[in-house]
Simulated scan of single mutants.
Amino acid sequence: MDRLDAFPPPAELVIDLDRIAAAYRELSAALPGVAVHYAMKCNPHPEILALLHALGSRFEIASAGELDALVAIGVDPAHVLSSNPVKPLPHIARQHAAGVWRFAVDSEDELDKLAVAAPGAAVVVRLAAHQIRSGVPSEGKFGIDADQAVTLLLAARERGLIPYGAAFHVGSQMLLPHAWRAPLRAVGYLMSKLAAEDLFLQMVNLGGGFPAKYAGKIPPLADYGATIGAALRDLPYPVAAVCEPGRALVAEAGRLQATVIGTAVRGGRRWAHLDVGAFNGLMESLETGNQLRFPVSDSRGSATRDRFHLTGPTCDSQDTIMFDVELSADLRAGDQVYLGSTGAYTTVYASRFNGFDAPVQRCVTGVAIETSDDAAYCG
């Protein structure tokens, strides 16, 4: 690189809104009768929220701040699920005052907070669902077994709250459609136990976990719909069903455009240092032990290829995205590297560690961008 001013602009995450719309319609068709509540923690960009709202999606939140963003675009809080099982008391009060009425819990302490800050609210008990490892493991922190859930919902009724539903989450990027069977059997057991106490649930929350395409194949969404539909029909009595997808709606819509800031050979291995890494956009690389493999291509597109370790700009050795990625052999500083399927969790996890900026996010329509279906990858 001969001129400093020849470097491309800072890293940019381009979001294809048309692709999000298509993903929403595909998931909705695969899960007929299941109300979709977008997990906005995944990517809360206002244009994404507005698009999904216009398409008829509802939303799931974990904080009062997330609710504020939804109210700003005209979302009715009565259609919002508050699914964080442990919430700060002021957040509960703010959400309830705004019109949110369904809250997840998995402890009596949370019931006590709801009784004070959201009297008369509907309670959705969070069940544990940790029998199968997902692609991006996220379970283990929340959830109780079905017998504990019976006790908790009866306690909710005693506190003047409404025992309303059951929820679970099989783990993010779940590649096994049958992972929903065991949790739904637990829901059925819970429903039967509660019926003996003259208490009947009204809703089951299937959580998220529906996968996006990264560098490998994923099962058809129809397989998930068939498994879930059969399990719902096996419940003791009909209940409303909802789900909380995140990455399944937005991941494949994103392409991260990064710049190579330097290359090096160390111990016989080639390294490409990018202007964006794990700490300012790609934290899921660390969360998965570098197992989440983004589709990758580069601006040179050379026929001669070599393998690189892709790493970020900070001085921390953990700041590495992927190992042994095939790119142009003549890759050098100033070239661009494109990472597909980066529409989920990229900007929300970003920090300014070491003073490096997070990627700029830009939404587009009517422009086909390379994402997981188009970018090349060799692992």
Rank of each mutant, 00 (worst) to 15 (best):
A97D: 13
Y237Q: 10
C243P: 03
L89G: 07
I20W: 08
L4K: 07
Q202Y: 05
P177F: 07
F294K: 05
V125Q: 02
Y38N: 06
A29R: 15
D373Q: 13
A212Q: 03
A155C: 01
G143I: 02
Y24G: 02
M191F: 04
F103S: 02
C315F: 14
S172L: 00
V136E: 00
D330C: 07
T342Q: 10
M40Q: 13
A11I: 08
P359A: 07
A54E: 15
T227N: 05
T304E: 15
L184V: 10
A253R: 00
L339N: 02
D306Y: 05
T342C: 15
A50W: 05
A253N: 02
A129W: 01
G225D: 12
G165T: 11
F279C: 06
E326Q: 13
L274D: 04
E26P: 00
S63F: 12
G312E: 01
A195R: 14
S328D: 06
E287M: 13
C315K: 14
H79N: 15
L31I: 05
N354H: 15
V260S: 02
D374T: 14
M322D: 02
L49C: 05
V367D: 04
G56Q: 13
N205K: 06
D330L: 05
G262L: 13
L13A: 01
G208C: 05
R126K: 15
V86M: 12
W180F: 15
I369H: 08
D68H: 11
V337Q: 02
L176A: 15
L31Q: 04
D298M: 08
G74R: 09
G281F: 05
I261F: 06
T151S: 14
Y214W: 11
R159W: 00
P88N: 10
E244T: 09
G99Y: 09
V260A: 04
M322A: 13
L67N: 04
L89C: 08
A248S: 13
Y214Q: 03
E60H: 05
R266V: 14
A118W: 08
P238D: 12
A167L: 15
L190D: 04
A226D: 15
A278R: 13
V14E: 07
H309K: 09
S372I: 07
D234A: 15
F168S: 09
M322W: 08
V86R: 14
L232W: 05
G208S: 07
Y38V: 08
G225A: 11
Y237W: 11
R58E: 15
S138Q: 06
Q173V: 00
T371Q: 12
S138N: 05
P32A: 06
P8H: 11
